[in-house]
Design a protein around this nucleic acid. Sequence first.
DNA 1: CTGAAAGCGCTTACAG
DNA 2: CTGAAAGCGCTTACAG
Lengths: 341, 341
Amino acid sequence: MATIGDVARVAGVSRSTASNVLSGKKVTSPEIQVRVLAAVEQLGYTPNAGARALATSQTMVIGLLAQFLPDEFAPAMLQYILGVSNTARELGYDILLVSEADGARALKRITDSRMVDGVVLLNVADQDDRLEVLRAASQPGALIGLPGDPRDLDVFDLDFAEAGRLMVDHLVRLGHRELLLVSQPEHVVERGGAYVWRLQDAALEEAELRGVRLRTASAAAQQPQVGRDITAILDAHPDVTGLLVHNEAAAAALPSALHVRGLSSPADLSVIGRYSDEFARTFSLPFSSIESAPDRLGQLAVRQLVRRIESRTGLPEPHGVRFISPELVDRGSTGAPRPGR
Amino acid sequence: MATIGDVARVAGVSRSTASNVLSGKKVTSPEIQVRVLAAVEQLGYTPNAGARALATSQTMVIGLLAQFLPDEFAPAMLQYILGVSNTARELGYDILLVSEADGARALKRITDSRMVDGVVLLNVADQDDRLEVLRAASQPGALIGLPGDPRDLDVFDLDFAEAGRLMVDHLVRLGHRELLLVSQPEHVVERGGAYVWRLQDAALEEAELRGVRLRTASAAAQQPQVGRDITAILDAHPDVTGLLVHNEAAAAALPSALHVRGLSSPADLSVIGRYSDEFARTFSLPFSSIESAPDRLGQLAVRQLVRRIESRTGLPEPHGVRFISPELVDRGSTGAPRPGR
DNA sequence: CTGAAAGCGCTTACAG
DNA sequence: CTGAAAGCGCTTACAG
């Protein structure tokens, strides 16, 4: 493989001059530029990433910490990964994908060894043991998901509280007074899936404020259990006219559960979920939903991360939590409650 | 950040000795080992990956070339990524995930710059422009998916021809004589999705051999079009009693399409698909299927790749194509054809 | 068994 | 505007 020394020799200049031409950081004469570029072309020269990283302390790689937990819904995660990956590439960074079970250890490994210039953490829990490692690391990080203590961290997340209020508001306006919220399985909550209770608490508060009843239930996040859960939940609440689904797997299982029960939406039941449009398309979900915008969150997180990476010496921009506002995508699954129910 | 020089100083030895203790490649005295290890501990030393890569020409990173084509089904791809990623980590490698649209250029970039020790190519097409780059690269590669010309390449794939024969055989044994194969959309075939015709050709041949009729159709790979396609296909072939589904999106859309038509499986129609068990669970697909074993393929590909990476100087093991045998997972969606049809 | 030295391929002050 | 030199943090013959 050609080195910059080869390029310099072929071009008849010194290595520093060749380097300067390629980086463009110093003014060089046009004729020398031509000679160097011709040599690069002729030799098929590409800089060695390791050597460059050693010299510049920049790897142009971003670590992406994903977690595929057995009780979470993998396809939903993919969208975040793609959002992060695409934005990173646009900004000139490659992605080191880390999906080990022990995220804290993995994070320590890739930051301590300086394999990455920064990291994006997915699926952040309320108490997340990766945060301690991140705070101790010398590279910056961006989180997708709000932890209990977001101090000194760049956090991006959907405004789940607002989403909960929005779901309730939408159904109350249509005349519903008996609502049911189906959430993630208990483990997700116990593990610190704060988004679950952020949405739920706000929804409950809004329901009380509006004088309607909102009950809650949780369903599994995997087939076939979630199908049984959904059916049981529907059976247990015959008086409910408005269903809020905060569980991707449950949303995916709902069409057939409704079918089996001979129910249709919105005629018998108004349904509103919380997932991405892409997800709705993949699973052909006919329900209106709060867009969770994984691609936008990934993009925001990476942009902020790169800004921080590239201004290491510059202004110490304050850290902060940025929520994106929920938007309701109407797919026609909500309407006035059926008089009979 | 502590360097090996710091470790050496604290331990009171030379840098080479510190390095030798850590690599274990040379015999060192126990007392010196203790001192070096203590220094490592005290300083929280982790080797700098870039420096090590420069010195050893090994990055311990594997490039994973994925493609998310708009007309392919993203969740199916995720399983391969996880299979590759998990196996790589077990063997001590990290994953550089590359999902750019221009795969050839991306491949050239990461191999030329020596960011990776080897690469795994996903979603390999019959004529794949990444192969030329791979053959020119100095790192080894492993493919998942059989290209038209697999010369000098390590290839892993499901035996799609055998899968086609198996599907036909299974239904013919049950007494079916009118079969229909639903394949991927035309673009996938045109783009060189050889697996589509490998399965189809073998299925047609087997059907002829067994004296039954097998017709073919293709459906879109995305909602909502695939739902419409499936319905139209069912309507157009009322006499069919056995359905072979070689299209993940179509399989996912089939339950509701059957429901709408008032058909059930296997009573009205015997159905057999080709997807992974994990996929079946995610989409709660009730159909028997040929297991596509993405995790096993990923594992085989990475193991072989690592073997090649780590025996660069050693024996030149011959390249080759390795098919994994299809296995039928019975989910009870096939039976004798209904007499009436 | 240990250490001094060279080298991996780049970049970057610095002198001219 | 160009080049000689030093340095980034490792590893690895080589001499002792």
